[in-house]
Design a protein around this nucleic acid. Structure first.
Length: 587
DNA sequence: AACAGTTGCGCG
DNA sequence: AAAGCGCGCAACTGTT
């Protein structure tokens, strides 16, 4: 053990609230674990403090909760390279089966809270979030401990847990990826998606008619509604209430058991086509109509709130604004600022490629090498058509048993035994109530007490057939969850690594000279290519025109780097579909 | 009037 | 009613 002195080269800087200083305080820690004395930071001096140290030499900022601190830094023009988000990392460490000793982390229950953003039924307007002082925000969202001593203690517990993981230490990689995701999520909200409100309005008007008075329904929607009622011969039929609509349909001779699109499409009746159109229009109006536009788009930016780690598998969720559900129909409203372009990329068949890599299935990797994975599976002779390949692969990952899926999955099992063994094993573990773990170490939650109760009751001597069948059914349900967990979760890890790499590369671009393009993206992101949108396996970068080609290259390089970071030399090719355009049109 | 639960549909 | 995973959101229903 080297002598403990004041840290010469700080590797971490832990930041928390300080009662004494009335604002924040920080402690720097070096590789040997030597700690600086507590450094007081005035309440309004955090951005300056972080900025000065970041310029001197980037270190990993350790704090309780990125969305509580980082928006304030960004609006002050300060970006950080790396962080360690104690709340998100705690969540992973407390359940990861790759960690040797979890006892201390698990005992710190004050850190085990769900994300504040995920809890709130309705997030406040995102722009407001960025106008508030850090002080006011911390009062509004007391989620995890915020004091410096608590942060230091938790960081110690987490580092001990990380050190207890086996080599190679994938957990350390996962925590870094999760934390950079926390930074990116805040940055995405800060920069915003460039949104053409006029184009959005055009799309709405074309489909629904001109914007109606508040509370009134648009003309085209009313007209289609009348068409449905006429065809039903029921001038008073309610179309917006599923039970009432079902009764009206039955009265008109349509023997449907629900009013879902899929079932309605099966029936022949003159009321069905206009009804399907009515539902489509009503959905567009309710989900992304003029009200949505007023609430979520300001100054040419749509600023959704992302929730990293918001899904059990590790995928991001969103809270407010429906960032992950923007309909393709509205894609043309996504439009680069003047003088700029959007560089969009999505990964072709991300999940099956991840499965091929993690299972080491060379045949499956070869099927996807340099081409559409489904085409490769057809060429391998396992199935006859691309559509069959798709159904088979989705069935393999989701646990399909019936129909085409049940027929095709066994063929995949013969052609790609290693890949199928991995998902089949994950399903078997889940059916027995066990826990599965992603490639980098995120573990699935165990089944709940009710699940265990049902299984226990069904295994008692006096259990009836109904009980046994119910127990078997929910066991299979849980098996499908764990089957999918390992693939969906590892794909989410790959995506984080991809974005983390890309973020680093993008910031190496020199700001564009001249009058700042993309001014609405804020002090940190204007004039420089930046991430603007993320959706599981897809990113959109907003870039000055001159940089677009280079950005496309960076996206591609980042995908290959992410593959190597997770899977080393595994011969899996993560293919991208790249587009450079003013509008983010899909297909 | 406020709340939880359900339905239906958008996204991957 | 998606045969098979994971979500968020709005509107409606039924309760308190």
């Amino acid at each position: 053990m080297p002598p403990r002195e004041s840290p010469s080269t700080p590797r971490w800087c832990v930041v928390g609230r300080s009662a004494a200083a009335g604002g924040f305080a920080a402690v720097e820690i070096d590789d040997q674990g030597a700690r600086s004395p507590e450094i007081p930071i005035p309440a309004d001096g955090l951005a300056e403090f972080v900025s000065a140290r970041e310029a001197e030499a980037p270190r990993r900022w350790v704090w309780a909760d990125t969305p509580a601190v980082y928006p304030g830094l960004l609006s002050a023009g300060v970006r950080v390279e790396r962080c360690h988000d104690l709340r998100l990392c705690h969540q992973i460490l407390r359940s990861s089966e790759l960690v040797g000793d979890r006892s201390a982390v698990r005992a710190a229950t004050q850190w085990a809270v769900p994300s504040e953003a995920a809890e709130e039924p309705r997030a406040p307007l995102a722009p407001a979030l960025f106008e508030l002082e850090a002080e006011a925000r911390s009062v509004r969202r007391p989620s995890v401990p915020e004091s410096l001593p608590e942060a230091l203690a938790e960081f110690d517990r987490q580092r001990a847990a990380i050190d207890s993981a086996a080599e190679p230490n994938r957990i350390a990689l996962l925590l870094a990826a999760e934390s950079v995701g926390a930074l990116i999520a805040v940055e995405l909200t800060s920069a915003g998606v460039p949104w053409d409100a006029e184009e959005h309005d055009r799309i709405l008007s074309e489909a629904l008619g001109p914007r109606p008075a508040p509370g009134a329904k648009p003309a085209a929607l009313l007209a289609v509604g009348e068409e449905v009622r006429a065809a039903l011969g029921d001038p008073a039929a309610s179309l917006d209430s599923p039970p009432k609509l079902l009764r009206a349909l039955r009265a008109a001779g349509v023997e449907a058991s629900s009013t879902s699109r899929w079932e309605l499409a099966e029936h022949e009746h003159p009321a069905i086509p206009p009804l399907l159109l009515y539902k489509k229009l009503a959905r567009l109006l309710a989900a992304n109509g003029w009200n949505w536009l007023d609430e979520w788009v300001r100054d040419g930016r749509y600023r959704p709130v992302y929730v990293p780690g918001g899904v059990v598998t590790g995928r991001w969720a969103s809270s407010g604004g429906g960032a992950l559900q923007i309909p393709r129909q509205l894609r043309p409203a996504l439009r680069a600022d003047p003088g700029c372009l959007l560089v969009s990329a999505d990964v072709s068949q991300l999940e099956p490629r991840v499965l091929a890599a993690m299972s080491g299935d060379r045949a499956m990797a070869a099927a996807g090498a340099g081409r559409d994975l489904y085409a490769g599976i057809v060429e391998s002779g396992a199935v006859a058509t691309r559509q069959d390949a798709k159904i088979a692969v989705l069935g393999a990952m989701y646990g399909g048993t019936s129909g085409d899926s049940g027929r095709l999955v066994p063929r995949l099992r013969r052609a790609f035994p290693a890949a199928m063994r991995l998902v089949d094993d994950a399903a078997a573990v889940g059916e027995q109530g066990g826990i599965v773990t992603t490639w980098l170490g995120r573990s699935s939650p165990p089944p709940g007490d009710e699940w265990r109760g049902v299984q226990a009751a069904a295994s008692l001597p006096g259990a009836g057939r109904r009980e046994e069948e119910h127990a078997r059914r929910i066991a299979r349900d849980f098996g499908r969850f764990t089957r999918n967990f390992v693939v969906q979760g590892t794909a989410a890890e790959w995506a984080l690594a991809w974005m983390g790499e890309l973020r680093r590369r993008l910031f190496a671009f020199e700001p564009s000279p001249g009058e700042a393009p993309m001014a609405a993206s804020g002090p940190v992101f204007s004039a420089r290519p930046h991430l603007a949108f993320f959706l599981h396996d897809e990113v959109i970068v907003h870039a000055p025109r001159a940089h677009a080609e280079a950005v496309a290259g960076a996206i591609e390089e980042s995908a290959q780097a992410a593959g190597r970071l997770l899977f080393g030399d595994a011969p899996v090719d993560f293919r991208l579909d790249l587009r450079i355009s003013e509008r983010a049109l899909k297909d």
